[in-house]
Simulated scan of single mutants.
Amino acid sequence: MPQSVEEHTGARIARIRKQRGLTQQGLAMRANVSKSLLSKAECGQKPASPALVSACARALGVSTSDLLGQPYAEELRRDRMDALIQPIREGLENWDVALDWESAPRPAALIRADVQQALTHRRQAQYTDMVRDLPALIDESVHAVHTTAGDDQRLAYECLAGTFRCVFTVAWNFGYVDLATVALDRLAWTAPRADEPGLAAMHAYLRAQTTMSSGRYDVGMRVIDRGLRDLEGQDARRPGGLEAMRGVMHLRAAVLAGRMKDREHADARLAEARALARTTGELPDFGVTWGPTNVGVHAVAIASEMDDFGRAVELAEDVRIPSGWTRSRAGHHWMDLGRAHAWAGHPEQALDCLQRARRIAPQQTRYHPTVRESVLALKRRERARSSSLARFAEWVGI
């Protein structure tokens, strides 16, 4: 059944807190947050920020997905996405043992073309197409790894790394944190064998992302800084790709600093990223979106996560999304801006932003907890029933 409108993230925190026999003061002390903030989040007066959710999850001994209500099983079943996840779980069981296929694998270059297509689906948030192809691509890449040598084998390892990158994205976005962690471990094993520094940097970038779920932002920052040091002086087949990875890792550090409410550090990291982006321009590689536009949308997102919604709206005025820009990043920007408008008291602008996100990246929008929280906030605050909001809420699953 669709979740109740009252079951926002703050309400889940309250429900699980009571199941643990904790008072608000007790949870606030364990989570190292203010009782006032926790109280307002539980009753829906303030948003349950990602930092608050992570802190409460650690204190309650649950995952952030539990507090966010993920995975959204009913909607996944309705879209038949749940049936596509299990073959991926099975596919990840083997990554290092030769298969008993009698036929030879396709040339690594042909496998790579299909993996690149999967990575394109990932960046465009076309998850159904991507997920459907991944199990076969994992098996074929494993087979190629064990039946080739030299540069063909290195390329096969690169293909395998690309499939694990795709698995991480869909698992993380749909709330299967356990599956995302397995994919990350597989990437850690594969990246060095591909002999491409950019893939090792990708592992650091994604590992830092997982620390956002656990609230260990200090660990994430150290992972990023170590990854940046490891890139220094590296030779690469794709030097532009290394610059892109440097840039997105600075952005990841800025987000981590924002989660820690360290505005000065976040601004410093954004400044480093902005300076690099002025040199490189738009430079997508290794499945990331890098350039001046991405710096701008990250600045908006960080301001929103720090509950500085007015500043987020103001910063968004300077963001111009280029035609043909990555749909996953563009959709995320409109979700972040929609959240900012929702909590700044601008319901019409908020819904407009969420509708834009839906048009650009529908699957990503439908399953993202930020969207659900924003919709729930809008529904609680609406003075007169809005048919547009009701239709959007029904589409999301509320």
Rank of each mutant, 00 (worst) to 15 (best):
Q153S: 13
T211P: 03
H368V: 00
F174W: 01
Q126H: 08
R165I: 07
A59E: 01
A275E: 11
F164H: 15
Y217R: 02
Q3E: 06
D79V: 05
A253R: 04
W395M: 08
E93I: 06
I398G: 05
R20M: 02
A11I: 03
G220T: 00
L199E: 08
T181A: 15
V131P: 00
G338I: 01
E314L: 08
S4Y: 06
T23D: 02
A299H: 08
A48P: 07
V33L: 02
E394W: 09
R132L: 12
E272Y: 10
A340Y: 14
M202A: 06
E102F: 07
A253N: 15
W343H: 12
R80I: 10
V223G: 04
H203Y: 12
L68V: 03
P239D: 12
A108K: 00
T190F: 02
G291M: 06
T64H: 05
Q3V: 04
R269T: 12
V142F: 14
A361K: 06
S323K: 05
M1P: 05
A342N: 07
L376P: 03
Y157P: 10
H203T: 04
L231W: 02
A83P: 03
L187E: 02
N94H: 08
R381K: 15
D308W: 14
R329G: 00
V33D: 00
V170C: 07
A73Q: 06
M81Q: 03
H121F: 02
D82H: 09
G61W: 01
D79W: 15
M221G: 00
W395G: 04
A180C: 08
A194T: 01
R229H: 12
R222Q: 12
A144H: 03
A171C: 04
A104M: 09
N294P: 01
M221V: 10
L134A: 04
R132T: 06
R12L: 02
P87L: 10
D96C: 10
R112W: 13
T23I: 09
Q124I: 04
V396F: 11
